[in-house]
């Protein structure tokens, strides 16, 4: 059985001569939280719209639950929030959910439960038009949760939320993941993606720039050591790492030892250096944040 709940192969959408999405291939595995990253206008929302059948591709293929995107069976097993919530402004939040629930053949209880899940029950009887942006966003997520679909496609779900709302949304997405639901999440909040996404895809200028785990994307953690004498420090460091060590001058012209930090016990290394009578000026482990990687990637494009 195919482990991918969503997969695309060279998926393309052109508007005239302009490729909004250009041969994007991605795969979302069952049960994972997949972060879909990219700067504004990169083609994230267009890709997600194609996965929901709202926009027709001009090239390539896609499947959702092994079915054609937008097919009734695929949509019934998918909950979505795309580019902000779309609801009837004259209806209350709860009434909106009841209308959407009827579309899915669900009952009132499902609407009540979904509203409760996003902690909006106390304002459920208020008209949608009176909601703040954050409340609208939460109602959109509630609609996506109706019927407990296997797959959630959430486009910037934390847009407009205050810090408390964002924390609440993070915990909601985490609990969905814990329950085994698959979440395809587009976000520009990289710290968030870094926290709970199993894998990420980065789209830049309509093209897929990267797909893999967050740690792979960020690259290895690098240990940097300034010490004296440098040859003795090199010998100790080589003994402490599996992949050896390199010597090079840093940007200030100081000789610097670098090594892959994976598996290195830093306190033990320092103890050994001191025991070998090495003066340790500094030890640091540098790890690029997802934001740094993302900026490097998007600027390069």
């Amino acid at each position: 059985m195919d482990d991918n709940i969503v997969s695309t192969d060279r998926l393309t959408k052109r508007y005239g001569d302009h490729p909004a999405v250009d041969q994007v291939s991605l795969s979302v595995r069952r049960g994972e939280v997949y972060g879909f990253l990219g700067p504004n206008g990169a083609g994230k929302t267009t890709t997600l719209r194609m996965l929901l059948g709202l926009v027709r591709p001009t090239g390539g293929t896609a499947s959702v639950h092994g079915l054609a995107p937008g097919s009734p069976d695929a949509l019934r097993r998918t909950g979505s929030l795309i580019e902000g919530p779309g609801f009837f402004p004259y209806l209350s939040g709860l009434e909106n959910l009841r209308v959407i629930a009827r579309y899915r053949g669900l009952g009132r209880r499902d609407a009540d439960e979904a509203l409760e899940r996003v902690e909006l029950t106390s304002r459920g009887s208020d008209r949608f038009r009176t909601y703040s942006l954050g409340m609208k966003q939460r109602l959109g997520v509630a609609a996506a949760l109706l019927g407990r679909p296997d797959l959630l496609i959430l486009d910037e779900p934390t847009n407009g939320l205050d810090p408390a709302g964002m924390a609440s949304m993070r915990s909601l997405i985490q609990s969905l993941s814990d329950d085994g639901q698959t979440v395809l999440l587009s976000s520009h909040l990289l710290a968030e993606v870094q926290q709970f996404c199993h894998r990420v895809g980065v789209i830049v200028g309509g093209k897929m720039a990267y797909e893999g785990t967050v740690s792979e994307l960020r690259g290895s953690r690098v240990l940097r050591l300034h010490a004296d004498p440098i040859d003795r420090a090199m010998r100790v460091l080589k003994g402490a790492t599996a992949s050896g060590a390199d010597l090079a001058d840093d940007e200030d012209g100081r000789p610097t030892l670098t090594a892959d930090a994976r598996g290195v016990d830093i306190p033990a290394l320092i103890r050994e250096l001191v025991a070998e009578d090495v003066d340790v000026h500094s030890v640091s482990v540098n790890e690029r944040s997802l934001e740094e990687v993302f900026l490097t990637m998007t600027e390069a494009k």
Binding site: L52, P72, D73, L75, F87, Y103
Partner: peptide, 18 residues
Amino acid sequence: NWGTWKTTLTQGPGRLTT
């Protein structure tokens, strides 16, 4: 104007049925 097509058309009944 309300953006409700994207909500109703993604619930599963299909475009013609909706």
